[in-house]
Amino acid sequence: MKRRLLIIIVIIFAFNLVTPTQQQKSNNSDIQIQKAWARPAAKYANSAFYFVLENNSSRTDTLLGAETKISEEAEIHESYKKDNDRMGMRPAGKIAIKPKSKFEFKPGGFHVMLLGVEKDLHIGDKIEVVLRLKYAGKIKAQAEVRDMPMTKEMKQ
């Protein structure tokens, strides 16, 4: 009886230990972050983090927010056209990424704003930003600090 109980406990323990890891791995492979880069910024100033978010899963996932040790705050923002030649920027809230699709966070559009960077971000520096998604959970992204997106000629 005790042996049976022990076996059941071991099975439950093993299940709990393995399942979340497999789930995390599975979700993470469903979401891919590509072409990540960030703008240079002096300490206390703001930077912007750009990337392409690819949802390979069969359901819509939602980017809920971002966090990083590199800045005081990280918010999803959107640059928008006010009229002919006026531009503005506003918080963008959550972003839904449709199944089997890509969503580009790019200059002049959506981006993660890194508010009040903790140190100078020089061209060539590497930073890490964690994206929070509804289903895929937290995903780490590495980005290089650059003044412009990487072109095909630059060979990523």
């Binding site: 923002h77 920027m89 200059p107 003044d147």
Partner: peptide, 13 residues
Amino acid sequence: FTNCPDICPLSTN
């Protein structure tokens, strides 16, 4: 304005 992380750096670049 330097708090602008997107449009002004684009213009400056």
